[in-house]
C-alpha cells in the first residue's frame, strides 16, 4: 500500500505554547483515519500545518512531512500550496467563517471549479447544481443566488462540502464536517464521502467529537490530548478496550452509555495551558490510574501490534498494567 501522507514528530508553537507536540500520523492511499480528542488538543492545527496554513506567529517543526513522495518541508510555500491545493482538500471546521459573506453560493463553488477544471460558465453552473444536489441541498437551482447569511447552519456546511469535493482530491481532510447536520443528512453526507473514498481510492482524515460517527465510519482512530497523540488503535478495539486512561475517561462521558443516569461522568480538572504544563505525563493530574512515576517521567509513545499508546501503564480490559 502506498503511503500518501506521512507526518513525523510535528510540532507547532504559538508564542511558546505547544499547540502540537511531537505528532506522528500516517495515512495510506484509500484509507480512513479518524482523529478525536479534547477541545484545543491540536487536531485542527495539525491539519492546518500540513496545508501550510498556520498563521503568524506559529512556528512549525517536523522531522518529516511527506505528501505522496514530495517532501513538503523542503518546498517553497508556493510550490507546496500547488501540491496540497491540487490533491488535498479540506473541509474547515467553521463553515460560517470559511464562506465569503459577500459572494453567492454559485460564485464560490464556481471559483473552486475554475481553478481546477476550467470549463465554460454554463458547464460550471451545471456542475455546481450537480454538486449541490449531491450534498442534499433541495432545489439547488433556486439557491444559486443565495448569500451565506441566508442559509441555515447545516446548509452552509454542505456548501463547504460541495466545494471540497468539487475537484476530486486524493486526500480529503474533513474537520467536523457534519456537526451542524441532522442525523439523516449526516448519514447521507458520510455515505457520499465514503463512496468517493471507495470509487476514487481517496484517503480521508475525519476529525470529529462525535464518537458514534467515528465508530461507524473509520478503520483507525487517533486520540489527541494537549497537543500529543496519546493512543492509536483500530475503531473495533478502541470502543471496547481503550488503552489510554484519557480515552477510557472520554468514552465514559458518552450520553449513550449513561442513558438512565441523572448526571454524566466527567474528567476532573482542566487541560494544561501554556503555563501549567505538568512534568511527566501531561494527563497525570487528571488520571485516576496515575502513580508516582507518571508525575516524574514523560511516557514515550510506543507502538506494539499496531496499537500505539503514550502511557506508562496502558490499560488491558480497563486494568492498568502496573506489573
Amino acid at each position: 500500500m502506498t503511503k500518501l501522507l506521512e507526518i513525523e514528530n510535528l510540532s507547532v508553537e504559538f508564542d511558546g505554547f505547544k499547540a502540537v507536540d511531537g505528532v506522528n500520523l500516517s495515512v495510506d492511499e484509500g484509507k480512513v483515519v479518524g482523529i478525536v480528542g479534547e477541545s484545543g488538543s491540536g487536531k485542527s492545527v495539525t491539519q492546518l500545518a500540513l496545508m501550510g496554513l498556520i498563521p503568524y506567529p506559529g512556528i512549525i517543526k517536523a522531522d518529516r512531512l511527506m505528501f505522496h513522495n514530495s517532501d513538503l518541508m523542503a518546498l517553497s510555500a508556493k510550490k507546496r500550496r500547488s501540491i496540497t491545493g491540487k490533491d488535498v482538500s479540506m473541509i474547515f471546521q467553521e463553515p460560517m467563517t470559511s464562506l465569503n459573506p459577500c459572494f453567492t453560493v454559485e460564485y464560490q463553488i464556481s471559483e473552486a471549479l475554475k481553478i481546477h477544471e476550467g470549463g465554460t460558465r454554463q458547464e460550471r453552473r451545471k456542475r455546481v447544481i450537480e454538486l449541490l444536489s449531491q450534498v442534499g441541498i433541495p432545489a439547488p437551482e433556486d439557491r444559486l443566488g443565495t448569500f451565506p447569511h441566508q442559509l441555515s447552519g447545516g446548509m452552509s456546511q454542505r456548501v463547504m462540502i460541495a466545494m471540497a469535493i468539487a475537484c476530486s482530491p486524493r486526500l480529503l481532510i474533513a474537520d467536523e464536517p457534519t456537526t451542524a447536520l441532522d442525523v439523516t443528512i449526516q448519514a447521507q453526507i458520510l455515505e457520499l464521502i465514503m463512496d468517493l473514498q471507495q470509487k476514487k481510492n481517496m484517503a480521508l482524515v475525519l476529525i470529529t467529537h462525535d464518537m458514534a460517527v467515528i465508530a461507524e465510519t473509520v478503520e483507525d482512530v487517533v486520540v489527541m490530548y494537549a497537543g500529543q497523540v496519546v493512543e492509536k488503535n483500530s475503531s473495533d478495539r478502541i470502543f471496547t478496550n481503550p488503552c489510554h486512561p484519557y480515552t477510557e475517561a472520554l468514552l465514559n462521558a458518552l450520553p449513550e452509555r449513561n442513558i438512565n443516569s441523572k448526571r454524566l461522568p466527567t474528567i476532573p480538572g482542566l487541560v494544561p495551558g501554556k503555563f501549567d504544563r505538568p512534568d511527566g505525563c501531561l494527563f497525570h493530574p487528571r488520571c485516576k490510574h496515575a502513580k508516582k512515576m507518571c508525575k516524574e517521567v514523560v511516557p514515550k509513545y510506543s507502538e506494539k501490534n499496531s496499537i500505539g499508546v503514550r502511557c506508562h501503564f496502558p490499560l488491558i480490559n480497563g486494568v492498568p498494567q502496573y506489573d
Binding site: V36, G37, E38, S39, S41, G153, E176, T179, A180, H209, M211, A249, L250, L251, A253, L254, P255, K262, R263, L264, P265, T266, I267
Partner: peptide, 20 residues
Amino acid sequence: DEPVSALDVSVQAQTLNLLM
C-alpha cells in the same frame, strides 16, 4: 441553540451537567 455540539465529549458532559 446547539450549545454542546462544538465540544468534546467530556466538556460536553460538564456543560450538560451544569445546565441540569
